[in-house]
Nucleic acid binder design. Structure first.
Lengths: 236, 236
DNA sequence: GGCTTAGATGAGTGAGTACTCACTTATTAT
DNA sequence: ATAATAAGTGAGTACTCACTCATCTAAGCC
């Protein structure tokens, strides 16, 4: 044996095998996720995935019937990951605070997987199973939850009585586009990161998005003037 | 010769050759656009593109050094197409009307090419040349133009003094996400189109997006109550 | 008509690719 | 120890695909 892992190694249940306690299937999925993110689904080769996972190519096919099955499983695990703990936000804080912190959290969760997310959205176009995972599961659930929040506010007379799903999509869309855009700008010009660090940029942009959204959607305006940070417009 | 076009056929400048006046290069690009939209870049084969264009596979490589060159050229032509006439909108009408009609038009322009647009956005991740075409050219120019419009309104005291680029992105993002979402829903459930035809759905959703955006961004609220179509919320 | 030449062709080529399978190696049970 | 089993391996297989090139076709010119 030149390299690789030993067979039959169910790593005796007790002491953590130090650095490789992840069952083989998980290791392969993690490796696949990395390679998919780098190269896309079609661009990824099973041989590269195997190398990344530190196993032989044949091993992949013990755990996944086809490369596509591997894609679907990775999509599923990403879906679960992304949805995890989304209900735990939205506490007693103000609308502004709740929304902002909800968005900050999702941002931090998604950003490390952004390339993979893009690949999954794209592949959803071609593979119904992936579409089901990403849209049927994650997006639909998230939209549902936010819509309910919105609807409750409408009943309380805080928000205007408009289609909750469409309204919420407008907010999510703004955030989504911000991340995508930001990632492209960063790719095109990595240096520029220093002058305006990620976190500050996120805060600034999310704040503005939430601010516009809430102002656009509230039945009455809270602060009639402007917004902190920038001075009010001059004239009139 | 079993099929195909004749060589040397520069089709004598005069009478339109009825149904095939497009120079060969354009024909190939049009065919490639179709196949890319259906299968993605990697999924498309040069043989299928040749079949679609009604030429031999070898002919493609007379006009494009590589398949990737073909992708870049198609991206370029899509970029030009999408940007065409974008300045001609924004007349003397109200903000609401200008924005709505601007968005309607872009929607009609993009929708037939939506699958291709998705492919290009995706491939931008992997090919800097495509990224340059799509983001550097189209998106940047469009954003620039909208930002200027926004900034002018700020100076007039109509809009609040916030970062114009970020604000505009929030509007564009909402629209963009609406189209993408709509296309996925349609793919997943094509039947549902009948009960709510495209145009009506577009109008409804765009109106709401613009309405939320303008309310969120205006220095003063125009109509303090609600919005036409749906009644005001009850309480308070 | 004969000559030249740009354009078009499609079988062929070589570099991959996803997936298989006969075999090796370790673990567990007896 | 020994047998039985499970896990892992990687060279091999059948196939696909972007790209090439020797050959063919027809238009333009005299």
């Amino acid at each position: 044996m030149t390299s690789g892992k030993s067979p039959g190694n169910r790593m005796g249940r007790g002491g953590p095998d130090n650095l490789h306690d992840m069952p083989r299937k998980q290791e392969i999925m993690a490796a696949a996720a990395k390679v998919f993110a780098r190269k896309g689904f079609k661009g990824a080769t099973t041989s590269e995935i195997a190398r990344e996972a530190g196993v032989a190519e044949g091993t992949i096919f013990r755990y996944f019937k086809t490369k596509k099955d591997l894609l679907v499983d990775v999509a599923g695990s990403l879906a679960v990951e992304t949805l995890k703990g989304i209900m735990s936000e939205m506490s007693a804080k103000s609308d502004e605070e709740s929304l902002k912190s909800l968005i900050y959290n999702r941002l931090e969760l998604i950003r490390p997987n952004l390339d993979l997310v893009k690949v999954m959205f794209y592949e959803a176009q071609f593979h119904p199973e992936v579409r089901q995972m990403i849209f049927g599961r994650v997006i639909f659930e998230a939209a549902q939850m936010l819509s309910e929040y919105f609807e409750a506010r409408v009943k309380m007379g805080i928000f205007r009585d408009v289609d909750p799903f469409a309204a919420v999509r407008s907010l999510v869309g703004a955030v989504f586009t911000y991340i995508m855009f930001d990632s492209v700008l960063k790719t095109a010009n990595p240096a520029w990161e220093d002058s305006d660090p990620q976190e500050a940029r996120d805060r600034r942009n999310v704040d503005l998005i939430v601010d516009i959204f809430l102002n656009g959607v509230r039945a009455t305006r809270e602060v009639p003037g402007g917004l902190p940070g920038k001075p009010d417009a001059g004239g009139i």
